[in-house]
Amino acid sequence: MIRTIRSIQAIGIATYKEWAAYRSHMAISLLIGPVYFLVQYFIWHAVYQDRETLNGFTLEQMLAYFGIAAVTNYLTFDFADWNLQMLIRTGKFVTFALRPMPHWLFALSQKIGHRSLGFWIEFVPIFLIFQFAFQVDIIPAQPMWAVATIVLSFLMNFFINYCVGMTAFWLVRAEGIRRVFLLLKDISAGLFVPLSFFPEQLQKVLFFLPFQFTSYVPTRVFIGDYELAGIKLSIPAIVGVQACAVALMAAVTLLLYHAAIRRFSGVGV
């Protein structure tokens, strides 16, 4: 266990240093959050022109929702799916198959290092811009639970994307499926519109899918209340449900990974 922790730490630090050398690439993403929010700002100002509330959201709460979603995305951003599919397609995955550490753990260690750098280069500047320049209240109502939900969202995002990446073990070209799936994932996570705006029957389906735990749940935890499909839960309760969902998704990832490795060894990809 100690050796594994040290390996994770070493890989994370190496990734941090590697990306720090090309931090200008990461700094470009500083434009994405503000531009995304400004689009939402103008859209929702037009929608709220003749009303004070919409589905229980005031204009200020709606802007806070999208501000929080944009900011927290800098902490949980993941591209494990693209990276894994690239390794499989080019044949470079074989070098990882021979290593004692499973690739999924190596990829998770890389993400820890990558997002640690992103915290300083992306999250902190955007947080300050939203809080003071845009004057959007993105201070979490319960900071400790906010930290817990971000950590769980970080893991859930990784496990979902890694599972998507593993489709490349069975498909020659998985890029199309990857793009469609990730679009549906973003819609089901509440990135484009709060999930409470969907029809009630669809909300009931979304409640049992893992995608809400990547964005919708962390955003609602930051706001300080949670409701979906008519189900209202306290912040500790929904974070507990999120933890169980992450554990289940981790188990699915491990099962799929072992099946993928057996196929990889069997066909000699």
Rank of each mutant, 00 (worst) to 15 (best):
T4S: 07
R6L: 15
R6Q: 15
R6A: 15
I8A: 11
Q9L: 15
I11D: 04
I13V: 13
I13H: 06
Y16N: 05
K17P: 05
W19H: 12
A20T: 10
Y22H: 13
Y22G: 08
R23F: 07
R23L: 03
S24R: 05
M26A: 00
I32Q: 00
G33F: 01
P34H: 01
Y36C: 00
V39G: 00
W44C: 00
A46L: 13
Y48I: 10
D50N: 15
D50V: 08
E52K: 12
E52D: 15
F57A: 02
T58L: 11
Q61L: 09
G67D: 00
A69G: 12
T72H: 08
T72C: 09
N73T: 14
T76L: 00
F79D: 05
D81A: 15
N83L: 10
Q85D: 06
Q85I: 05
L87K: 13
L87G: 07
L87E: 11
I88C: 02
I88W: 02
I88N: 04
K92T: 09
T95P: 04
A97H: 11
L98I: 07
L105R: 10
I112F: 06
H114V: 04
H114Y: 14
R115M: 11
L117H: 01
G118M: 03
F119G: 00
W120R: 07
I121K: 00
F123G: 02
F123V: 01
P125T: 03
P125A: 01
F127V: 04
L128F: 10
Q131S: 15
Q131N: 08
F132D: 05
F134G: 05
Q135C: 08
Q135I: 10
Q135V: 12
V136P: 03
V136E: 03
D137L: 07
I139C: 09
A141Y: 13
P143C: 14
M144C: 07
W145H: 13
A148G: 02
V151W: 01
L155N: 00
L155A: 00
L155W: 00
M156W: 02
M156N: 13
N161C: 15
Y162M: 11
V164D: 07
M166H: 03
T167F: 14
W170C: 02
W170H: 01
R173N: 15
E175K: 05
I177V: 15
V180E: 08
L184S: 06
L184I: 10
K185S: 10
G190Q: 05
L191Y: 14
F192Q: 07
L195W: 03
F197W: 03
F197N: 04
P199R: 01
E200K: 12
E200Q: 12
V205P: 07
F208D: 06
F208W: 11
L209I: 11
F211Q: 14
T214D: 04
V217T: 03
T219A: 10
T219K: 03
G230Q: 09
G230K: 10
I231L: 11
L233N: 09
L233M: 15
P236M: 00
A237I: 08
V239Q: 05
A243L: 06
C244Y: 09
A245W: 09
A245Q: 06
V246D: 01
V246G: 02
A250Y: 14
A251P: 04
A259L: 14
I261F: 01
R263T: 08
F264A: 07
G266Y: 10
G268A: 13
